[in-house]
Each structure stands twice: as structure tokens, then as C-alpha cells.
């Protein structure tokens, strides 16, 4: 099965690949965007462009990372992120091992590090890790020699999602500087929001976080100051937040937030914060609608908006594969 691939395109990708600025890359792991510079994110975009070209081919597979093994280790269920990483890895001809760890084993006695060390000993080169505990990928990176890609940790970070969001914006807007992005909903518990706050701030966007106070971190202002983040603000009222918006990103509302009394009712949340056509019209005419998925239609977003011409939700998914190919390429490149 492995050697029967047609050999007509032996080397990835255009002659100009990789671009010279690849020399600035210094990350062994992808843990969060807080450690990225604008130049590094631009580099990810460049490599992603090349990967998009691969994805446009009839045979979407290149031998670039043949002999590399990637393990996806998911301590939390996920379909799309897992599938996206798996396809990205396979498109680059890596071998992929998938591990689903049941939630019940996230307890003491069944050591997280032991599992990962075993994978390292088995010869895995890259671990893609999804974990319900914030910081788990940092623990892994601290104790292992191989590369860790954070596929989402607790409330903390989801850097590959943020990069694919940024890449999607770049394809539509070119330059991201000064774009007004409105992120709506459960910021407090959202790793997607946290990584996007870093990424968008680094890229010069203006980000408005819009949610009821119970779903915003109480210490948000202090966080913005201490982390020297620019362009981040908050707004409780959605109609006000949407004025002049270029990009709108409603977040998935977990139903447990109402159960834990953070919201009086789903009904009131929908009334105040659902992105519907009427509210969408308050933004700029060509404003884009992004969503990290999975969508609760009729909750944070109305179906007509989710499937409107302004929605790029499906494109985000496609771009996600290319971004993850680019990241796998960048962090394993040193070993090639």
C-alpha cells in the first residue's frame, strides 16, 4: 500500500519552496500563539499557501514527511480536529497512530506522562494532543524530547484553530491590520477565543469580546494589561459590538453553562447574543462569519447566517487541513 504511489511529483511543491524566511522558525512545539511573532505567523501562511496548492491537486498526497510518525492523542472527544490532523499528516505521507483515551482515565494513577513516554519510545516523532486539562501540552513538552502540537487544552489554547482562522481572514482580506473582529459568547471557557486573542492581537486586529459578564473572565482587563495585548476590548451589548465589524465569530455555547447558572436561560441568551440576519446587517456589508464548530444552529447562530454567502465556516475546515500540514512540515523539517 505504501510504495504504489505515483512518482510523477516527487518533491512537494513549487521550486521556490521552502521560502528563505523559513530560517526564522524556532519552534519545536506548537503550544500557543503567545510565543509567536507576526513574522512567524506570516511564515505559517506562506507554507500554508503551498499546502493549499497540494490540496488542489488531483492526488492530494506528497512524500515530504515520509518516515515520520504522528500520533494523535485525544483525551477529549473530537471529530473534526482529529480528522483534520489525521488527513494533514497523511497528505504529507506520515504514518499516523490514533489514540482515544476515555475520559474516565483522566485521574490520578493512570499517568498521562507514562502514556506519552511510551509513544515516544515507540518512535513517534510528533504528538498531537487534545486534553481537557489546561496546560497538559506544556507538561508533555517539558518532559518529552519529541514535538508536541496542542490540539486544544482545557480553557487555555487551541493554536491551530486560531491559525486557521487567521489564515482564512488573510485569504479574504490580505492584510489583517486594523480588521475589526467580534468574538461572541463563552469567552471564559473558550480556548479558541484565548488563542485568537493572542493571534489577532499579534496580527494587528481590533478584537471585541462580546458576552454577558458571567461568560467573560473577571480579570480580563488586568490580563490585557499584564500581557501587553493591544486592540482587545469588551462589550456586553452585541448590537454595539457589531458596528463596523469586518469579522464575526460566534462561539459554541455549551449547554452546561446554563446548568451551572451562568445564564438565566437559553432563551434569553438567544435573544441577546444569537447572530441572526438582522444583527449581521449591523456589521460591514461584506463582513465574514466564522465559527470554530461544531455549530449549535438556532442557539449562537441562526441557520440562515450559518449558511449565508458571508459564512466561511466550511472554508475554515478546508484551510484547517492546509494549516496543519504547514505546521507539521515546519516542526519536523529540522529532522529531515
Amino acid at each position: 500500500m505504501k510504495t504504489t504511489q505515483p512518482r510523477d511529483k516527487p518533491n512537494v511543491i513549487p521550486e521556490t519552496f521552502p521560502p528563505p524566511q523559513i530560517s526564522i522558525w524556532r519552534h519545536q512545539h506548537i503550544l500557543d500563539l503567545d510565543s509567536f511573532t507576526k513574522e512567524e505567523i506570516d511564515l505559517v501562511f506562506e507554507i500554508t499557501d503551498a499546502m493549499m496548492e497540494v490540496l488542489g491537486r488531483e492526488i492530494k498526497k506528497v512524500p515530504t514527511l515520509r518516515g515520520t510518525t504522528v500520533a494523535t492523542v485525544f483525551y477529549e472527544p473530537s471529530t473534526r480536529t482529529r480528522a483534520s490532523f489525521e488527513l494533514a499528516a497523511k497528505n504529507l505521507s506520515t504514518d499516523v497512530v490514533n489514540l482515544d483515551i476515555p475520559k474516565s482515565s483522566v485521574t490520578k494513577g493512570e499517568s498521562f506522562l507514562d502514556t506519552l513516554r511510551t509513544l515516544q519510545a515507540l518512535g513517534v516523532d510528533v504528538i498531537v494532543l487534545r486534553h481537557s486539562q489546561s496546560g497538559a501540552p506544556y507538561l508533555a513538552a517539558q518532559h518529552l524530547d519529541i514535538s508536541i502540537i496542542n490540539g486544544g487544552d482545557g480553557w487555555h489554547a487551541h493554536p491551530t484553530q486560531a491559525l486557521l482562522d487567521l489564515y482564512t481572514l488573510r485569504r479574504h482580506f490580505g492584510d489583517l491590520t486594523g480588521l475589526k473582529v467580534v468574538i461572541i459568547g463563552d469567552i471564559l471557557h473558550s480556548r479558541v477565543a484565548r488563542s485568537n486573542i493572542w493571534g489577532m492581537s499579534i496580527m494587528g486586529c481590533k478584537v471585541v469580546l462580546c458576552a454577558p459578564p458571567t461568560l467573560l473572565p473577571r480579570e480580563l482587563d488586568n490580563f490585557i494589561i499584564r500581557c501587553h495585548l493591544s486592540g482587545i476590548s469588551k462589550e456586553y451589548k452585541l448590537e454595539a459590538a457589531l458596528q463596523e465589524a469586518d469579522v464575526i465569530m460566534p462561539l459554541r455555547l455549551q449547554f452546561e453553562r446554563q446548568q451551572s447558572r451562568l445564564l438565566p436561560s437559553l432563551r434569553e441568551y438567544i435573544q441577546l447574543y444569537q447572530l441572526n440576519s438582522k444583527r449581521l446587517s449591523l456589521a460591514k456589508p461584506n463582513a465574514l462569519v466564522l465559527h470554530p464548530g461544531p455549530i449549535n444552529e438556532d442557539v449562537e447562530i441562526s441557520p440562515e447566517v450559518a449558511h449565508s454567502a458571508q459564512s466561511v465556516i466550511e472554508e475554515q475546515v478546508t484551510n484547517g487541513v492546509a494549516v496543519r500540514m504547514a505546521l507539521l512540515y515546519l516542526i519536523t523539517r529540522g529532522k529531515r
Binding site: 503567545d34 489546561s134 496546560g135 487544552d153 482545557g154 480553557w155 487555555h156 489554547a157 480556548r191 484565548r194 473572565p217 473577571r218 480579570e219 480580563l220 488586568n222 490580563f223 494589561i225 499584564r226 500581557c227
Partner: peptide
């Protein structure tokens, strides 16, 4: 502690 570090790290705070 519920503060800027907990916000940054995505950890639940104790006010």
C-alpha cells in the same frame, strides 16, 4: 488565584 494569570492560563480562579 482569580487574576490575570488564571485568565492567561485558562485555569479556574479562586476569588
Amino acid at each position: 488565584n482569580e487574576g490575570w494569570v488564571a485568565t492567561r492560563l485558562g485555569l479556574k480562579g479562586i476569588p
